[in-house]
Every structure is written in C-alpha cells, then in structure tokens.
Write a protein that binds this DNA or RNA. Structure first.
Lengths: 130, 130
DNA sequence: TCGTTACTTTAGTCTGTGCTAAACTATTGC
DNA sequence: GCAATAGTTTAGCACAGACTAAAGTAACGA
C-alpha cells in the first residue's frame, strides 16, 4: 500500500540529502535548514514528508526539534542510498553507456523530425533551470 | 548524476507494474498496454522513461516492439522491488504503526483547523480515481 | 499504393508538489 | 506580559509530469 510513499519520499534529491545528513547523527531542524539553500518552511515540509514515510522521527528539546533517521525503516532501500552516497552506484555500471545511446537516439530523432515538413523551428526548448 | 533518474523512474506505480510484468519475460508494448487502463500513448511514454533510465530495452520484431527488463540495471533496487512484489515489504515492518500514528496526527490537525475560523467544509475532496 | 496493425510522438489539460512569503505556535528569557 | 528564537503551517505560484486525443511513422498484406 504505502511502499510507494516510501519510494516517493526518497526519490527527491533534497530529501535524500536530508537523510544523508541524518545518517551521521541527530540534527535540529535549524541545522538541516542551514545546510540547504531554501527557506526553513520548505525544509520543514520535507521533514514532514520523511516523517510521514516513517523515515525520520523527531522530538522536542527546548525550542529545538531534533530529527533523527529511522534507518530500520529503510530496509532494502538502505543499500540503494548507501550506494548513492558512497557514490559509484552499482546501478550505474553499464548505465552510462546506455544513457549515451539513449541521448544519441533522441538527438537523431530530433534531427530527423526537424528535417520533415512541419515547422521544425519554433518547436522545442522550454527548458527552464530550477 | 542520474541515480535520481532511476529512483524517479521506479517511484511511479504504473512503471513499477510494468517492470513487474517484464520480470517474467519479454512482452510487446501492446501486451503491456493491454494490462493497463490507460491509453497506448501513456504506456508508450512510461516505457520511454524506463528505457531512458536504462531499466528496460526494446527491439523491433515485425510490427511489434518487444520490451524486456534490464535487471542488471536495478542493482540494489532489485531487492526493493522484489520485496514490494513479494509483498510484505521488509520496510513495512513497524511502518504500519507509524503511518497509523501519522494519520491520527494529521486527522487531529485537520480537526483542529476545521474547528477554527475559515470554512472547514468545502475544502478537501478533489479525489479522482486514477 | 492503399488500408490495417502496432506502435510513438505531440499538443494540450489537469493534478501533484516544491518553493516562497507570511502568518501562526511554542518555548524561553526579561 | 512582551520580545526573541525556533520552528510549523498556509496560501498561492510555477513547474513537472501523467494523461488523452489526435497526428505521425513503420511494417505488413492485398
């Protein structure tokens, strides 16, 4: 039912980063927010998502909220994140080449459709940095 | 760089289902589409995403596109999906209780805000089956 | 060459969600 | 009580992405 909730939760780079931070120990919400370049509110929301996925837990201490990872909750996902953090994701073995190929194909496709009837110019490119 | 691409790809229920189907062997795009209650186009797009994440590959055979999983690409994610399919995700041990708690909290929050000034009624419920 | 089958791609809509700003809540110190 | 600190929550915006309908493409058969 909610395994997707979990996957969704860790599929977000910002939240991955938060988990990463919490891997080495507890942190206050403020410390976590300080690490990021977005508002406190945004981080608070991410923390909520992580919490509702069971991936972190928190307790109050004075005026601080202290968060920590519930690594038990990760299960097999621990290995995934571990690989991602250790970098050199096993997943990526042989993937680079695949992406290369995929990109080439895409470009080829683009090129071909560009040479066909309709417009060709004034088409793609609504790419906006985030 | 693209580990997130992978996680994003498998975080989608529809795509998980497709991978599930392909676990037992190759299938034509049509067969995969037949399994789902959305248009062929939608499935084709999902297949594209999976392909660009390196999770499936395809070949043409007559007028059929035959897809198969690249399970090597899954790496540690294999265990995750495996657990999800085998159901009874290890992750879920102790999570049920957590979600229970989360839900209760959310309801409590909702109730509280409902009893306050603004509306309370005419709020949620734009739930549409997918 | 025309029609059919089996797709893929595109344009456009609609919902989800990450973000900001601002309001709100809770704890502490004066 | 009042102000400051440390957060959470809400409203609203903008972009991502899942979906549909329709157009495009590619292989095959007549």
């Amino acid at each position: 039912m909610s395994s997707s909730l979990l996957l969704r939760a860790i599929a977000e780079p910002r939240r991955q980063r938060i988990l990463r931070l919490l891997r080495d120990g507890e942190l206050t919400a403020g410390a976590i927010a300080a690490d990021a370049d977005v508002t406190f509110g945004a981080i608070s929301q991410h923390l909520r998502v992580l919490k509702e996925a069971g991936l972190v837990e928190n307790r109050r201490e004075g005026r601080h909220q202290i968060y920590r990872a519930r690594s038990e909750a990760l299960g097999p996902l621990a290995a995934v994140l571990q690989s991602m953090w250790e970098d050199r994701l096993g997943i990526l073995k042989g993937l680079a080449e695949w992406e290369e190929r995929g990109k080439r194909n895409r470009d080829r496709r683009r090129a071909r459709s560009g040479s066909s009837a309709k417009t060709g110019a004034a088409r793609g490119s609504r790419r906006t940095a985030r």
